[in-house]
Nucleic acid binder design. Structure first.
Lengths: 242, 242
DNA sequence: ATAGTATTTATACGATCGTCTAAATCGCTG
DNA sequence: CAGCGATTTAGACGATCGTATAAATACTAT
């Protein structure tokens, strides 16, 4: 069955360039339009390659997606680990919290040097695959990203020991959602702010997310006891448990 | 044709039941798997209907999606308007801010009475369409939701006049992203919290998002002047403008 | 009950999907 | 230069896609 992934060792032919062009094109197209909506032929056309060469290099469409994840996950999470290590050495607790948050966010935009600009593109792709419920992506996330997220949450927990872990998980989840959405729907920020903000300005987005997330993390935990009063919004306020 | 939802109207034929069954099935499938990945035949099978009847009732696949939006948008945004009006009448400024935020969030989970449980499902669908860059959805969002979002941001601006509008747009954007992601990836919260939190508990999710968002909105604005010092995280800190 | 309309059904169409095969071409090595 | 493995190419396969059509059926109104 054409094996799966070839062994890129003796550096043969123009293989490297075609392979990289396919990966780049697929990443861009998947991130912009979703997995199912993009055909093998679309990718081949964008990469200037033959549809058959995609099967040759990656075996299948799933194999191509898997390889896209492979080339990004390791550098991104390694960078996150480095920055988290640096953050934990920050003396001032206030600055340390921000540094931890920043260590989680920044590599999602700028992952590694050799894939210039690819960090944000790959993160956008992750957002789209997550929304589509892609099975390949789901498996990789559980295998690879949960570990990094746990390390991040542990660091937050040491920093904010008065908050339950569940609270930190929720807020990390919101942070990731905000980050994803900022990459998926960039035009809306520009439009709603009437040009006052630029939704495609990654540097600005990072600063805004950091500021908002740090404030969110520092908020007191939600009181989970039943019978809270609210502003009369929810029609069904049963406070169900487990 | 044992459809679930009744529609006691002038009751022409079994039209109402089939039509509603198709809408329900399509909404569920689109929200779970994306637009392109779900075929007309999938929907027909799930709805217990004939593929041809979808063309008959909705003209095309795009027409079906459009109708899904149509039946949800008006009730959801009307409810948001009502709750925003109530929120603005809250005396205490602290509670008023929370009420405003709640007015934006709650209808996304519980939109209207006659579409029980459909609010969260439709919001999840919006999240997925947004991620996929669906053109039908994009047009509807710009036409319908921007107005509601502007009203929401205006209310926030009156409440927090010291913050630039751009800051409020960013944070509203993050709020929406968090909300979307909490509906798209519910299992991850449960998994990362090791069962301490339930990602599918909408009531809990609302309280967590409200708490986190209110805190985020109250944070001071990001200093947009160039040359800020940071904790040494970002490799490229150029603070580019426009 | 019968006529007429609304809806559902079976079926077919052309297009496009992911994948496979075999031949052509490339780039290196002996 | 000849040979050979690596890569690219053109083409075809069956499956499935969205949609249209015409016949069959269900319902309403007279």
């Amino acid at each position: 069955m054409v094996t799966g992934v070839k062994q890129v060792r003796p550096s043969p032919a123009r293989q490297a360039s075609t392979r990289a062009a396919i990966l780049d094109a697929a990443e861009e197209l998947f991130a912009a339009n979703g997995f199912t909506a993009v055909s093998i032929r679309d990718i081949a056309r964008a990469a200037g390659a033959n549809p058959g060469s995609i099967s040759y290099h990656f075996g299948s469409k799933d194999g191509l997606l898997l390889e896209i994840y492979r080339r990004h996950c390791a550098p991104m999470n390694r960078r996150r680990g480095e920055l988290l290590g640096e953050a934990l050495r920050v003396r001032d607790p206030e600055n340390r919290l921000e540094a931890i948050v920043r260590a989680y966010i920044v590599p999602a935009y700028y992952s590694s040097a050799d894939l210039a600009g690819g960090g944000a593109r790959f993160t956008r792709l992750r957002a789209v695959m997550s929304a589509e419920g892609n099975e390949v992506a789901r498996r990789i996330i559980a295998d690879t990203f949960d570990e990094t997220s746990h390390a991040f949450i542990d660091a937050l927990h040491r920093q904010l020991p008065h908050l339950p872990r569940a609270t930190l998980v929720w807020r990390s989840h919101f942070l990731l959602g905000a980050l994803y959405y900022s990459l998926v729907t960039q035009g809306r920020v520009t439009r709603l702010s009437r040009g006052e903000a630029d939704g495609s300005d990654h540097a600005a987005a990072i600063e805004e997310i950091v500021r908002a997330s740090v404030a969110a993390f520092k908020a007191p935990a939600v009181d989970t006891a039943p019978g809270r009063s609210n502003t009369g919004a929810s029609p069904r306020k049963t406070t169900q448990r487990s």
